[in-house]
Computed example of a mutant assay.
Amino acid sequence: QLIADALVEGRPPEVTDRLDDASWRRVMRVNLDGTFHVLRAAVRVMRPAGAGAIVVIGSSSAFDTPVGYPHYSASKAGVHALSQAVAKEVIASGIRVNVVAPGPTETGMAARTPAALRSGFADPRVRPYATPGEIADIALFLASDAAANLVGAVLLANGGRFTA
């Protein structure tokens, strides 16, 4: 709400100096620590089998860092780096790790985004918010044999908002 209020009032958001340790750690625990735990569990199952494909959900926010979300952007950049490091390690065991990095997507979290922020994401030159199904299609592709040559890739799925 701090960010939305600042946009409505025409002033820059002031987030970093107000961001408490608990909020920082919560985002890191959910996004980065959670990804580590899932990757580790998947590798433990797939390595003995000598094959597998893991698709991690990152975020375009790791590249196009939105103002007011330093903790989210940092956590997702960490997710990308973690996934790429694990991808290099486990490819020798026949396991592929790749990342889909969505931009704005119609999720429960997006539904709670204040209108002032949602309108900031609206851009007539690009596709609107992705649907969960569109992001799932990309994840399914990354998990499929059609993506057999993709290892450590981060696929931007942001509707043309930017390229990296």
Rank of each mutant, 00 (worst) to 15 (best):
E106F: 03
A122E: 10
P114C: 14
A139R: 02
P114T: 11
I95T: 00
G103S: 12
G133V: 15
P124H: 10
D137N: 07
R125H: 15
S119Q: 15
R118Y: 09
I91R: 06
D137P: 03
G103H: 02
P102F: 11
V126G: 08
S119H: 08
T105C: 00
V86E: 01
A110S: 12
I135F: 05
D137F: 04
A136V: 03
K88Y: 04
A122T: 08
V97C: 03
S119C: 11
A92N: 14
P124M: 13
P128M: 06
F141Q: 05
E134A: 12
P102W: 06
E89D: 15
A130I: 07
P128Q: 13
G120P: 03
P114F: 09
A139Q: 06
A101W: 10
R118S: 13
P104M: 02
L142R: 07
F121K: 06
I91E: 04
V86R: 01
T131E: 04
N98P: 00
G133I: 13
I138M: 08
A136G: 04
P124W: 11
R127P: 06
A110F: 12
V90I: 05
A116D: 08
V99Y: 04
T131W: 10
D137C: 05
P104Y: 04
T105G: 01
G133D: 15
A139V: 06
G120D: 06
L117I: 13
A111W: 12
N98C: 03
A136E: 02
A85V: 13
I95M: 00
A115Q: 15
E89N: 13
V97T: 05
V90C: 00
G103E: 07
D137H: 01
Y129T: 14
